[in-house]
Design a protein around this nucleic acid. Structure first.
Lengths: 339, 339
DNA sequence: TGACACGCTGTAAACGATTACATATATTAT
DNA sequence: ATAATATATGTAATCGTTTACAGCGTGTCA
């Protein structure tokens, strides 16, 4: 591997000057710059980033930490973020964690390695943040999880109002004439974090407001946010309560599983069973039938997160906690029940 | 930020001893180790990874470079890889690149920064590799793209035999009685790399072997590997050639789009149109109808890649180029054409 | 002419770890 | 008792950059 010293020797200048060329410092003679750049190009020299970051207290990059790739919705947000960063000419690194890893510990590790100017967490567990985030000092943003209760002044959050969104989803079923409603997804023991809690809470609130009977025994099947789990839970629920005419799935992935489950239980969607999902992933627009959903605005979630972070990275501003509007998307999967 | 010197001072030992504790060197007095570890825990000290990698010629981690997250199939492979690495107690870093970025350039950058022991490329462009890979010296594996032609002795590859797989996919349609067959996906100008080339080639070969007419004008619609593009191309093909009874989609994502396109063109799948995809992503098992596909063995692809890499990282072995068996999965989306 | 500024370049001290080598002490063999 | 060996620890050079500081040639101005 070539080092800056080799370039210095080859070009006849000192390491200091070479370094100044690499980092585009202004006070270098244009002719000198040209010569050195030529040598750098010839040799294919790449400065050792470790030496660089060791010396520099901070790097120019921003790191996005994503927890759980299996979530299609996160993918979309991530793509939008990449776009937004690119528009702002920012360098980004993405780190993927699986469910078992601790996002805050990983973040600490990253801070010591990459010295990012800012951090974005896509998904996360509120308790973990409450416990460990204090030691992270760079401006950060938490996306899809509300951090306003946590009160860290360097942690913004951008979320969808899931309670309200869930209300509208179930409200959609109710307005379509459904009275026997089931819910699939999440868990009663809050391990899934805010998402399932809030969506479940919103759903229950609107049901009780309309005095529609709901019990966890009869109208609910818990499951993780995946196709397979949605399918299994869907079958379970439809078996134990075949009268249900409308199901609110806590995520689109679950909804897709439920639609298939209905089919395998001899029910047709939407003729025998209406289904509405949550998130607005791309699949639901292409499935047959198109599945109704509450579309979270991935683009805005991403855009606002990036904007806020870049702002706070450059200027001292207070962290913000913002709700991004959602849209209820009608779909072929919800109609008025037959009887 | 605390440094190793702080720990040395606080514990009364030297930096050398502290370093040995951190790196689990055997020749440290257990009592000393305990004391130092206590201080480390108290202070929350994290060693500066840049300093570490600057000094060390090589790190313990392995880096996976993924190009294009929008590809569901890659996600599955990635998950399987994470599993396989975990089983072997290996530390992994995943880096995501978007389509526009150059994987080999990124890899060079990573090598200079993280000094990985090995590299896995998930997806990639053969030409790029041919041109730039020479400067990468760590053991590497290229997954889903055949590198046997490239002849780098530190680059293995694990792939599915796409030519043969595509033959079987189309063969399945033919055996089911289809004679008017369309193909959706890829492009004629090889920009999509090997995948579309091989799959297209296999499809054409079996069609001509059965003397089934095929022309790019009448039986083909090119498109990128996404839902939306599959949908658009599907509609285009069905409009320009409504007689087609069976479609081979070059990927499952495209197949899903085609199924929806058929519906919107007034055709039902499978009654009016049979569709078979490629890859075997999870979704096709839950869609209505279940979509027939050629299932690539993501788990094996991942497992063998990881095994081979770990082997070559520790011992000097020649790179290998291995084909992983695929499975044709029957699905509700393919039946005998009506007339 | 001397003083000063300006533009460019060189020098060398950091940054925070690792590790080869030296050293000190305890243990064992002869 | 002496030498040899093993064990535990300290010392200091080193990795490849950045950057504060110094130096030098040239031009400008009083």
């Amino acid at each position: 591997m070539k080092t800056i010293k080799d370039i210095a020797r080859l070009s006849g200048f000192s390491t200091g000057t070479v370094s100044r060329v690499i980092n585009n410092h202004p006070d270098v003679n244009p002719e000198t710059r040209r010569k050195i750049e030529e040598i750098i190009a010839e040799t294919g020299f790449q400065p050792n980033a470790n030496a660089k970051f060791l010396k520099q207290t901070i790097s120019s990059t921003i790191t996005v930490i994503v927890k759980g790739i299996q979530n299609s919705f996160f993918e979309t947000i991530l793509e939008e973020m990449q776009k937004a960063f690119k528009e702002n000419g920012e360098e980004v690194t993405v780190v993927f964690l699986d469910e078992a890893e601790n996002e805050v510990t990983a973040a600490k590790q990253i801070c010591s390695t990459r010295k990012p100017r800012g951090l974005i967490f896509l998904g996360g567990n509120t308790k973990e943040f409450a416990k460990n985030f204090a030691s992270i000092t760079v401006p950060s943003v938490l996306v899809t999880v509300d951090a306003s209760q946590l009160g860290f002044e360097n942690l913004s959050s951008f979320t969808t109002d899931d309670i309200s969104g869930a209300k509208e989803a179930v409200g959609y079923l109710i307005r379509s004439g459904h009275r026997k409603i089931g819910i699939v997804g999440g868990s009663l023991e809050e391990t899934n974090g805010q998402l399932s809690t809030f969506r479940l809470q919103g759903a229950q609130e609107i049901l009780s407001r309309h005095q529609i009977p709901f019990s966890f025994e009869e109208n609910y099947a818990p499951c993780r946010f995946s196709l397979e789990d949605g399918y299994m839970a869907g079958r379970e629920l439809l078996r134990k309560n075949p009268d249900i005419t409308g199901i609110f799935a806590l995520s689109d992935l679950i909804a897709i599983g439920v639609v298939r489950a209905a089919r395998d239980e001899g029910k047709r969607v939407p003729e025998d069973l209406s289904v509405i999902g949550y998130d607005g992933i791309e699949y639901v627009r292409y499935s047959v039938p198109r599945i109704a959903t509450v579309r979270q605005d991935a683009a805005q979630l991403a855009k606002r997160s990036v904007e806020d972070l870049l702002m706070r990275v450059s200027y001292t501003r207070a962290a913000v906690h913002e709700k991004i509007p959602y849209t209820v998307i009608a779909g072929e999967s919800v109609i008025h029940p037959k009887n």
